[in-house]
Amino acid sequence: MDDFLPSITREIKNRLTEPYLITTRLDNDDSLHQDFVKEVHSQFSKQEFRVIDFVDGYTLQVAPRVRFGQHSHVHNPFMSLIEKSENFKTIWTQERHGYWRSVKEVTPVRGKRLWMSVIHSENKANEYKGYGNVAKSAIDSFNLHPQALENFKYNAENLHLNRAGAFKHKLKTNWKVNFKLLERRLFS
Rank of each mutant, 00 (worst) to 15 (best):
D2E: 15
L5E: 02
P6F: 09
R10Q: 14
E11V: 04
I12K: 03
I12V: 14
I12S: 13
N14P: 09
R15N: 15
L16A: 05
L16S: 12
P19A: 05
Y20P: 07
R25V: 07
S31P: 03
H33P: 02
F36C: 01
V37Q: 09
V37K: 04
K38V: 06
K38H: 11
S45P: 06
Q47G: 11
F49Q: 04
R50I: 03
V51H: 08
I52E: 04
F54H: 05
D56K: 01
G57W: 05
G57E: 12
G57Q: 02
T59D: 08
T59V: 15
Q61W: 03
Q61E: 15
Q61I: 03
V62R: 09
A63M: 00
R65Y: 11
V66D: 04
V66T: 14
R67Y: 00
R67H: 00
F68A: 10
F68K: 03
S72W: 00
V74M: 09
H75M: 06
N76Y: 04
N76F: 08
L81I: 10
L81E: 09
L81D: 04
E83M: 11
S85Q: 03
S85V: 02
N87D: 15
N87A: 04
T93V: 03
Q94E: 14
R96W: 03
G98F: 10
G98E: 09
G98W: 04
Y99Q: 04
S102H: 11
K104W: 00
E105A: 14
P108L: 07
R113L: 04
R113V: 00
W115Y: 10
M116N: 02
S117C: 06
I119M: 02
E122M: 10
A125H: 14
E127V: 08
E127A: 15
E127Q: 12
Y128C: 06
K129T: 14
G130R: 02
Y131I: 01
G132A: 10
G132R: 01
V134P: 00
A138H: 11
D140A: 08
S141L: 03
S141H: 05
F142G: 03
F142K: 02
N143P: 01
Q147E: 14
Q147M: 13
F152R: 03
F152S: 08
Y154G: 06
N155K: 07
A156T: 05
A156D: 07
H160Y: 10
H160W: 11
N162K: 04
A164C: 09
G165S: 13
A166W: 01
F167Q: 09
K170L: 10
L171N: 13
K172Q: 12
T173W: 05
T173C: 15
N174I: 08
N174M: 13
N178C: 10
F179T: 12
L181N: 13
L182Y: 09
E183G: 11
R184F: 11
R185K: 12
R185N: 13
R185W: 08
L186V: 13
L186I: 14
F187A: 11
F187H: 12
F187R: 10
